[in-house]
């Protein structure tokens, strides 16, 4: 579903990604871990072109993202994204946050979009918050709305950029629960996270990144109990 070939990304002279190769299969849940500054988030943001690609190739659902002829807006409709800071639209009610893109991009009628939005809010347990503004919700609730907003486009895959890092510890669980449910339903997921418990329990595969490259990848149990690389060992020792 996603294929990454020799991906390089630089900001000016600063080389952030130094040749990444990776494949993600449909319905696979891939978790990316690694120290801050290792390029995890940049890697994720290259998958929907929020960052331009300096060199290499990213193929999403058959579209070569570095091909100027590719309509990136169309690709993005199939790739949902959840941000660390939620990025809900503060001037719109919760339900309007979910309805905007389906109405304007998928051209759903207001009624269809509303029905779809309500179903998704029920799914994330926030149907009663539909008419509130995002600021009136807790961080955990906001992030669940943000997940529902991405799902409202009915994407083929979802990218999560440290979705629980900005949350108070007691609110992390409710967001992970929604993500777990999503994984169970067969969604293809690419998750940059510091939640090792989640990576271990829900991930089909764990990627350890450091200094702009993939150092090690494998099944969660193998990465967490028997890491091969010294850098992985050192990182896991520090955080576990």
């Amino acid at each position: 579903m996603i294929e990454v070939k020799d991906l390089h990304k630089s900001f000016g002279k600063n080389k952030v990604l130094k040749g990444i190769n990776c494949e993600i299969q449909p319905s696979e849940v891939v978790c990316v871990i690694g120290p801050s500054g290792s390029g995890k988030s940049t890697f994720l943001r290259c998958l929907n072109m929020l960052e331009s690609i300096t060199k290499g190739d990213v193929i999403v659902d058959g579209n070569h993202l570095n091909d100027p002829k590719v309509n990136i807006n169309l690709v993005r409709t199939e790739v949902g994204m959840v941000f660390q800071q939620f990025n809900l639209f503060p001037h719109k009610k919760v339900i309007e946050n979910l309805m905007l893109a389906p109405c304007k991009v998928r051209h759903l009628s207001t009624k269809e979009a509303r029905n779809r939005a309500m179903k998704l809010l029920e799914k994330v347990g926030l149907a009663d918050k539909a008419d509130q503004y995002p600021q009136q919700l807790s961080g955990g609730q906001q992030q669940r709305v943000a997940i529902a907003r991405a799902l409202a486009m009915e994407p083929k895959m979802m990218l999560f950029d440290e979705p629980t890092s900005a949350l108070d510890p007691e609110l992390v669980g409710e967001v992970l629960e929604v993500m777990k449910q999503l994984a169970k339903e067969g969604m293809t997921m690419f998750v940059v996270t510091h939640e090792m418990g989640f990576a271990r329990e829900v991930g089909d595969r764990v990627i350890f990144m450091d200094d702009g490259v993939i150092v090690e990848e494998g099944e969660p149990d193998q990465i967490f109990t028997n890491p091969q690389s010294d850098r992985t060992k050192e990182f896991l020792n520090k955080i576990l």
């Binding site: 929907n48 929020l50 993005r76 409709t77 949902g80 800071q85 990025n87 639209f89 893109a101 991009v105």
Partner: peptide, 18 residues
């Protein structure tokens, strides 16, 4: 306006002017 707002819009498939 926070950059994340534009990024959220674009990530949903809205084009620049939308």
């Amino acid at each position: 306006i926070d950059r994340g707002q534009a990024e959220a819009g674009r990530s949903l498939g809205l084009n620049h002017s939308q």
